[in-house]
Nucleic acid binder design. Structure first.
Lengths: 193, 193
DNA sequence: ACGTTTTTTGCAACTTGTTGCATAAGGCTC
DNA sequence: GAGCCTTATGCAACAAGTTGCAAAAAACGT
């Protein structure tokens, strides 16, 4: 729904080719709006047809040959229009939380390993974000960078939350498994479900 | 990808009709795995064909007539199998963060209103979660409820994070707008972008 | 008994996102 | 210059999610 606007933003920050965009989506923008190269190429085609962007004249239209895009005035207007409206954040869809809920019914086999795995992943992501903050946002500068830093701090806050929650969850599950070994077990209970 | 497992979990917790499931997805399970009634009916059909669930014998197969489903042993096995694997949480896709990034390029017109709107929404959601915790999870009880409470606490933690971040963002944007009124403005700057 | 509303299930068309592969150009190696 | 890897663009088929609507049954009012 907002992929075109993500691309317009990225292209306004810096005109790029499809592959360069894909790379940037893997790094900065993709942290909060991911997209595959397929989506990006398809959307670039649509945006070009809509007259929002155009290929830089240097490149001929041939397959396998780099094609750089820049945003046209109509594209900037469209992004401005979109940014003036409301952005509804859709509800969470988190498979790990779903699995916890499932584990309450069919048993907790392997749950602690999975929690530990996620803990590692989120710690790594948090470290990456903090590295970016240290590198790119030393002293708060112009308004543009202060807004971008705000976005980064959302990422840091989210990862911090997950790391803390996962630690709490791990402690709880460990406690449950220990209790199941001594005491009697209820239905669907026990570490080897 | 995990909608069938969300439904199996819900049906194991309590056999239900399609509409009843939809209602429950609007409340508890949908807080971390949302689904429309369309998705649910379609998936119920697939699950029935796969032999994972069956309609309770009482109901005849006729349109507009309630049809309750229960999970068959094969369905429980499938859910157990799924819960034994890895659940990859997909990257965030947050339109508000995207908009912040866009606002850094095309101006901050209306940004503070939007932040305030989200703040209200997240405060409301947080209150709803806390009400559920107070109502349904007084004293920590059996292992099943302790796991479900853990899930709820993830929701509470996430909403708490957003409320805090939005307050921080609002302060930052207010400060930027104030600075733009006195001092000189850079490119893409100014409260009326 | 009759029309209206609500409940419940479902089809069809569409949009968005994913996966696997194809194709072309350019550079590197031998 | 033939083979191979990397870069770069793109098609096609599929899977998942959304939107709008239809239609049968039940409940309700008069």
């Amino acid at each position: 729904m907002s992929l075109p606007h993500a691309i317009l933003t990225a292209l306004l920050e810096k005109p790029s080719s499809g592959l360069a965009l894909t790379r940037r989506f893997d790094r900065s923008i993709g942290y909060f709006w991911s997209a595959t190269h397929q989506q990006i190429y398809r959307e670039l085609g649509k945006l070009e047809q809509a007259g929002f962007i155009r290929a830089l004249p240097s490149a001929q239209p041939s397959r396998g040959q780099k094609k750089e895009f820049e945003v046209l005035p109509a594209g900037r207007r469209e992004l401005t229009r979109w940014a003036g409206g409301e952005q509804d954040s859709k509800p969470i869809r988190d498979a790990l939380l779903l699995r916890l809920r499932a584990s309450a019914v069919v048993g907790r086999a392997g749950l602690d390993e999975e929690l530990r795995r996620h803990l590692t992943l989120h710690r790594r992501q948090l470290a990456e974000y903090q590295e970016i903050e240290d590198r790119d946002f030393g002293a708060a500068a112009d308004p543009e960078d202060r807004l971008r830093r705000l976005v980064l701090r959302a990422g840091i806050g989210l990862e911090t939350f997950w790391v803390e929650w996962l630690a709490e969850a791990l402690a709880e599950v460990t406690d449950l498994d220990a209790a199941a070994e001594d005491g009697p077990a209820g239905p669907g209970d026990g570490p080897a479900g």
